[in-house]
C-alpha cells in the first residue's frame, strides 16, 4: 500500500511559538487514523498544511507523492471538514450540496441526500441560520459523500448528540467498507472513536508523541492500586505516567504492557490492576508533566 501523506520535520511557527514542531509521519492508503490531542495542540494546523490552506514554516510535505500547494491533482482528492468551515451568508443547505460536486469529483448525490434524511436537515434553510449541531451535520455529509481518497474530519460533531454521533460512526464504517479510503478523525472524544481507528497519532504542544497502531496501544497502560509501600516495590523499572496518593494507598498508572509475571507479582502483593482507556492514557501523557517524543515509524 502506498503512502498518501508523508511529512518530515514539518514545522509551523507563529512568532516565537512553534504551533507544529518538527513533526514527521506517514499516512498509508486505506486506513482510518485518529489524530488526537488536546485543543490547541496543533492538530488543526497540521491538517491545514496538508491541505495547502496554511503554509509550513519549514519541513517536507508530500501528499499523493506531490506538493499540495496549488496542485489540483492533490486538492481534488482531498476533503477537509473542519469545525470552523465558513459558508457564504446567502447559501442554503441545498446550495452547499449543489456546489459540492464541483469540488469533489467522487461526489455521490444519492448518498448525500440519504444522509440529509438520516440527519434530518432542512434543505432550504440558510447555513447561517443552522444550529451548531446542524452545521456539523452538513460537514459530516459533505465529508462522507465527497468520497475523497484522503478525508479529514476535524472535530466533526460539535453540538451533535450521542445518537447523531453514533449515526455518523455507522455511516462512516458502512461507506468506508464499500469505498475504502484514508480517513483522519481528529477529536478529543477519544474513547468514542478509539474502536474505529486503525492507527493513532497523538500531538502534544505541537509535537508528535505517539504514532502507533491502535491495537498496540490497547492495554498499554494500566493502573495499579494498593498500599503505597507495596506499590513502590512493584514499580521498580517501570515507566510511571501518573500518580495519585490517597491516604496510605496510592494509585499509579504505568506505561507498558504487563507480563503474566507482573500480574502474578501484583496479585501476591495484593495490588489491584485495572485497565486504562486510550483516552485516559492520552490525558496522562499530555498533561504537560511528561515530555515524550514518538520514534519515527
Amino acid at each position: 500500500m502506498g503512502n498518501v501523506v508523508e511529512t518530515s520535520g514539518l514545522t509551523k511557527t507563529y512568532g516565537k511559538v512553534n504551533a507544529v514542531d518538527n513533526v514527521s509521519f506517514t499516512l498509508e492508503d486505506g486506513k482510518i487514523y485518529g489524530l488526537l490531542g488536546r485543543n490547541g495542540a496543533g492538530k488543526t494546523t497540521i491538517m491545514h498544511m496538508i491541505t495547502a490552506q496554511l503554509f509550513a514554516t519549514s519541513g517536507q510535505l508530500k501528499v499523493f507523492g506531490e506538493e499540495p500547494f496549488e496542485n489540483n491533482r492533490v486538492l481534488r482528492q482531498t476533503c477537509f471538514i473542519k469545525e470552523s468551515q465558513k459558508y457564504p451568508d446567502n447559501f442554503r443547505v441545498v446550495d452547499v450540496l449543489n456546489v459540492s460536486p464541483l469540488f469533489f469529483p467522487n461526489w455521490d448525490r444519492e448518498f448525500a441526500y440519504s444522509l440529509i434524511k438520516d440527519f434530518q436537515l432542512p434543505l432550504k434553510r440558510r447555513m447561517k441560520k443552522l444550529s451548531r449541531g446542524m452545521l456539523s451535520s452538513v460537514g459530516i455529509i459533505v465529508g462522507l459523500a465527497s468520497r475523497a481518497p484522503l478525508t479529514f474530519f476535524d472535530e466533526p460533531y460539535l453540538g451533535l448528540d450521542a445518537v447523531a454521533r453514533s449515526l455518523f460512526y455507522d455511516r462512516l464504517l458502512e461507506d468506508y467498507a464499500e469505498h475504502p479510503r484514508t480517513i483522519v478523525l481528529s477529536t478529543h472524544l477519544i474513547d468514542e472513536v478509539s474502536q474505529l481507528l486503525e492507527h493513532v497519532l497523538v500531538i502534544d504542544n505541537g509535537k508528535l508523541i505517539i504514532n502507533e497502531e491502535a491495537e498496540a496501544l490497547r492495554g498499554r497502560a494500566s493502573t495499579v492500586v494498593g498500599l503505597t509501600s507495596k506499590v513502590e516495590t512493584f514499580l521498580a523499572g517501570k515507566e510511571v505516567i501518573h500518580r495519585e496518593p490517597l491516604g496510605g494507598l496510592i494509585s499509579v498508572t504505568l506505561l507498558g504492557a504487563l507480563t503474566a509475571q507482573d500480574r502474578k507479582k501484583a496479585a501476591e502483593l495484593g495490588l489491584e490492576i485495572t485497565p486504562v482507556s486510550l483516552q485516559q492514557m492520552i490525558v496522562y501523557l499530555t498533561n504537560g508533566k511528561n515530555a515524550r517524543e514518538a520514534g519515527v515509524s
Binding site: I32, Y169, D170, A177, Q195, L196, E198, A214, E215
Partner: peptide, 14 residues
C-alpha cells in the same frame, strides 16, 4: 468483516 465492523462499530481491519 464489514458486517462485524458495522455491528460492533469497529474498524474493519481490526
Amino acid at each position: 468483516t464489514n458486517q462485524f465492523a458495522a455491528f460492533y462499530q469497529i474498524n474493519p481491519a481490526t
